[in-house]
Design a protein around this nucleic acid. Structure first.
Lengths: 292, 292
DNA sequence: TTCACCCGATACCGTCCGCGTATCGTCGCC
DNA sequence: GGCGACGATACGCGGACGGTATCGGGTGAA
């Protein structure tokens, strides 16, 4: 007898229906049936009257229902008391304000469900710092993009996105199916503020050489897009991202893909960071995300 | 967070020592360490201060210890209340009063541990009824020996014991390393009461033909042994059994072995009987019994 | 100071359990 | 009498749990 079985039974008892209870528990009906049956043999009592129209509680089932609700509630209180005694453990996630963002919210949700006792904080970083604060200790784990200077940082790839050039729809290249970097020679680029990670900066500005003076400085995704729309520059970005009206993107064939990664400082992650990385990997692997 | 983890933590908290706690929980130290650590990350709190000399409770650990003991106690009460509401489910085990007996007590103990809500009754049958009451419904499951008339009974073998002849130590054959049934021709046998299963009876009395009149009637193992000791008969029995002073057994080479079996009435067992059969099989398979 | 022991942590592996997909049996209901 | 709904069953797979072997470190004794 464990708390899980009791949770299952409570759900069935309240729904009076295995199928609905299974849906409420985010699972399918067969394992739920088996678990409840196993609980019955474990307790040595018949808890439910099964019928093709649904289920009804037996006397023993009624008793167990009340008791189980009580026990589960007290289990919740136990958890609350412990976290109250220590102050909650926190995990701060850094995200880059781009396509990683939506993944970040989903990931944070999944993590919260798995570690209800942990307080999760999300910090959004701009394009100035691809480590999103890992080095300064502002965040425990980062959901960000390569490439950047990763000395002292461990990186785990989640997905590799091909890179495209972002253009105004009235750009001469806008209709092309694909372009090469050489096609973009002589175009005007934006640049990142001084002090930005040089590997990162070089990558996203097409390794543009020449005078930096007249290149507009951008700090965020929106500033990039604004620069393309109104300052006559072009930009690079992962093809996965959606673009606002007036902009299109064309794949760039000779750029290495940008990898969406989870990263942490140092070699070995703490247990929370390790769990976060595992969840992230699971969420991205089969595209069929485990549970909503 | 489940009750198992809490039980583990309580054991460690009370023993202040992973090794001793593991022993108390009938397991080894590594999985216990892992389970407690996992509980810590689950709750998001450090519960123990580990040191080479042992472990100490942190503040959070102290809180959890009290809460967990409470919760576990209430879980026990839940079980008690449910069984009280329905009357306890019972499983009646029939055993044959021979070597199956000791196995029966161990098995009953294992079954009680696995189904704490089930009342286990053990009924010892004499050699008159190898089904130990299965047909009459006196028992739900039997731990007995073949061969017997098993029409309408499902049988699952646990062990096959070679058969030996039981002799007085001063018997001419007593020193032999092995004998054949033909060596026993002309000897005096005991017999079972009228109405005893004929297959069973024929097997254990060496298929002795001839007048039954002067053959002593036995009902129990002890009566068998007494007959051999004082009535000049010989007997057959599984070699596994221990024998009292004055008796020895010599293997009989041309008799099929007697199989120690678990048996139940009908084709498909109830859940309790099925569980009993599984436990029995597990307990006999690798001779390294799972848990004492 | 060094060696040896003790304790908890880690690595690795086998097994069992639990969940999912697919299918069946059965009881109402139209 | 056929169809639909509900729970039970069969089967394959991945993960969790427990086992054995080993490591790292800290303590205490020679």
């Amino acid at each position: 007898m464990d708390l899980r079985s009791l949770r299952y039974f409570v759900a069935v008892a309240e729904e009076r229906h295995f199928g609905r209870a299974a849906a409420r528990l985010h699972m399918t009906q067969p394992p739920l049936s088996r678990a409840v049956r196993q609980l019955e043999t474990d307790l040595g009592a018949v808890l439910l009257d099964r019928s093709p129209t649904g289920v009804a509680l037996t006397a023993a089932g009624t008793v167990l229902y009340d008791e189980a609700r009580l026990l589960l509630e007290q289990a919740e209180q136990l958890r609350a008391r412990v976290t109250a005694a220590t102050g909650p453990a926190t995990l701060t996630i850094g995200t880059l304000a781009d396509s990683a963002q939506q993944a970040g919210t989903r990931l944070a949700a999944a993590f919260r469900r798995r570690h209800p006792g942990v307080e999760v904080r999300v910090r959004e970083a701009d394009l100035t710092d691809p480590t999103t604060g890992l080095r300064t200790g502002l965040v425990d784990v980062a959901l960000t993009r390569t490439p950047f200077d990763d000395t002292g940082i461990t990186v785990h790839e989640l997905r590799a996105d091909p890179v495209g050039v972002v253009l105004r729809t009235d750009d001469p290249l806008a209709g092309r199916a694909a372009v090469r970097l050489s096609d973009l020679a002589g175009r005007r680029w934006f640049r990142f503020p001084d002090g930005t990670d040089p590997v990162w900066s070089a990558y996203w500005t097409g390794s543009a050489a020449g005078s930096a003076a007249d290149r507009p400085v951008v700090r965020t995704i929106n500033e990039c897009l604004q620069a393309v729309l109104w300052s006559g520059t072009i930009g690079l970005g992962p093809l996965a991202d959606a673009l606002p009206e007036g902009l299109t993107s064309v794949p760039v064939t000779d750029m290495p893909p940008s990898r969406l990664v989870v990263a942490w400082s140092g070699a070995d992650p703490g247990p929370l960071v390790r769990s976060f990385a595992r969840i992230a990997a699971a969420l991205f692997r089969p595209e069929a995300a485990p549970d909503r």
